[in-house]
Simulated scan of single mutants.
Amino acid sequence: MLCHCYSQQPFEHCCQPYLLGTHSPHSPLALMRSRYSAFVLGLGDYLLSTWHPDTRGQLTAGELRTVGHSTEWLGLTIIFATGEATNATGMVEFKARYRENGRVVSLHERSNFERLSGRWLYRDGLINPPKIKPNQACPCGATHHSTPKKYKHCCAKRSV
């Protein structure tokens, strides 16, 4: 079975080890993908445990489980991702599609992640972030000969 996160990888080699707690996500992108899979599967405890305690408010695992189970998840597209195992912060911009009340909805978010006690956690996100113009530096931080790559030549051309 392919992973729920649309990585085109087998579930057991992608998000499952994170969801079972046998491994911790090594990057914000890995955490983002595993959180999407957790929503699909209604794993409220995992979602709550990977949410930064400073920003999750009064959310409960039960509420997150209900959201996951009551939603028909249709797809995840990664726009760009920053942050590796040695960074303190990272970012993932994504679009998640789901069906609500018979219509397809797209959630477009630029999410912020923080490493706390060695674990990546979802901190917060900006819904419908401002569009990145083609000639702006790519937010993923990619460079070519020490010069920032333009967005149109980097993440605008691909999905992660």
Rank of each mutant, 00 (worst) to 15 (best):
E114P: 02
E93D: 11
A85Y: 01
L29P: 06
T50S: 05
K95P: 02
Y98R: 14
H23C: 13
N128P: 00
K152C: 08
E84Q: 09
C138H: 00
P148E: 00
G44V: 09
L121K: 10
C138Y: 00
L121E: 04
N87V: 10
A30D: 04
R56D: 02
R65Q: 13
R115M: 10
V67K: 10
H144Q: 09
I78T: 13
P25C: 03
R110I: 07
W51Y: 12
S70I: 06
R56L: 10
L19M: 06
Y151V: 05
S146Q: 10
T50D: 02
P53G: 07
A85W: 00
S24Y: 11
G21T: 15
A137C: 01
S159K: 15
L31K: 02
R119H: 11
A156E: 12
A156T: 11
C154S: 08
C140H: 01
K149N: 03
N135D: 13
K149E: 01
A61W: 10
F113C: 03
S146V: 04
A81E: 05
R158G: 00
A88Y: 05
T22K: 15
T71D: 04
T71S: 07
R115C: 06
L121D: 03
M32I: 06
P28A: 14
Q136F: 01
F80A: 07
L74A: 08
H13K: 09
G68W: 04
R123L: 15
I127A: 00
H4W: 13
F80R: 07
K95E: 03
A96T: 13
F39T: 00
G83D: 05
A81Q: 07
P53E: 14
A81K: 04
A81H: 04
E12I: 10
W120Q: 07
N87P: 04
Q8I: 08
T77N: 15
L47I: 15
N112H: 15
N101K: 15
L64F: 14
R115N: 03
Y151Q: 05
H13A: 12
L43D: 12
S117V: 13
S7Y: 08
V105Q: 08
L59S: 15
S111K: 07
Y46N: 05
L121N: 06
D124P: 01
V105N: 08
G57K: 01
L41G: 01
Y122D: 03
C3G: 03
R119N: 06
T71W: 02
A61C: 05
A61L: 04
W120S: 02
T22W: 13
G62K: 14
T86C: 04
S117W: 12
E63C: 09
I132Y: 01
P139M: 09
D54W: 12
K157N: 03
P134C: 13
N128V: 01
T143D: 00
F94S: 06
Q8F: 04
F39Y: 11
E84N: 07
C138L: 01
K157C: 03
Q9L: 07
L121C: 14
T86R: 12
H52M: 13
T71P: 02
E72Y: 09
A61P: 00
H144E: 10
